[in-house]
């Protein structure tokens, strides 16, 4: 019964990945080269000397950091807030989750409209407030450019983790909450000493999902800042990989890239798992 699934996974996932592992040790003259030459780890060495690769890796790691701080942090905060109120809970749940169902492509196009210098929504707001217009996509100002690319990425998935946290909070024992209230716990103490520690296992799930999700980021940066505009400086691992896959015919190099991405994902998830070790007492 399990064979159809395994067959699919092997043919379309594991097999191509193993081919990639193999390819990463070879040099290809062109895409259809039938006799690639073995070059050992040379592709990996090239990778470490490739400025754009290092750039895209740094950008991705910075994004992972921002995601862990803001996405996970804000979603936990919002979940605690919604959990503490009694009215309109469903309304907030439904609206906060909404951006997730819209495709990142549409969101990217939408934010492009917002960032537009002449007629964008953000600049219109600035004008109404009596401020100067801002050239959002100024290639000179890389920090701002980076910020406007990653903000929608972070914003979109907050609702996702928010709902997971909220379910976790709903599952916490009511007795402990009531006991803490009788003992005179203030709302903030309750959050800090009881709710957050008890969410440990869920936090771990969220962090692993957030890390693996961030490594896969593609659509939004690709649309807001095509080809790592300007000159590859805003590439992420996913967009640079796409660039390599299309514009460069270096099959071996791209394969090494792919292997690296999976290793990075597995490694980071393992670290998260060790830091937030599963606690069976919760």
């Amino acid at each position: 019964m399990i064979i159809p699934m395994l067959a699919f996974l092997f043919v379309f996932l594991f097999y191509p990945f193993f081919i990639n592992i193999k390819n990463s040790f070879f040099e290809f003259d062109n895409m259809l080269d039938r006799n690639p030459s073995f070059i050992g780890v040379a592709n990996y060495i090239t990778m470490l000397n490739d400025d754009t690769f290092i750039r895209s890796l740094t950008n991705t790691l910075i994004l992972v950091g921002l995601v862990l701080i803001f996405q996970v942090g804000i979603s936990l905060g919002l979940a605690l807030l919604v959990n503490s109120i009694t009215k309109f809970n469903t309304f907030f749940k439904v609206t906060l989750f909404m951006p997730i169902v819209v495709s990142a492509t549409a969101l990217g196009l939408m934010f492009n409209l917002f960032y537009d210098y002449n007629n964008g929504m953000f600049n219109q707001i600035l004008l109404i407030l009596g401020q100067e217009k801002i050239f959002w996509k100024d290639p000179q100002n890389l920090t701002r450019l980076f910020a406007i690319i990653v903000s929608p990425v972070i914003w979109q998935y907050i609702g996702f983790y928010f709902v997971i946290f909220l379910t976790g909070l709903a599952g916490l024992s009511k007795q402990i909450m009531e006991a803490s209230e009788i003992d005179g716990c203030t709302g903030f103490q309750k959050v800090r000493h009881i709710q957050v520690p008890m969410l440990r296992n869920i936090t771990r799930t969220v962090i692993v999902l957030a890390i693996t999700g961030t490594l896969k980021v593609f659509d939004l940066p690709y649309i807001i800042s095509p080809n790592g505009y300007p000159s590859g400086k805003t590439h992420f691992l996913g967009t640079y990989m796409y660039d390599k896959a299309f514009n460069a015919v270096d099959v071996g190099y791209a394969a090494g890239f792919a292997v690296f991405m999976v290793l990075a994902g597995v490694l980071m998830s393992l670290i998260a798992n060790v830091v937030f070790r599963h606690n069976h007492n919760l």
Partner: peptide, 11 residues
């Protein structure tokens, strides 16, 4: 954990 990027060429 396998992003689609990691298999795209052979695929």
């Amino acid at each position: 954990m396998f992003p689609i990027f990691s298999t795209i060429f052979p695929l």
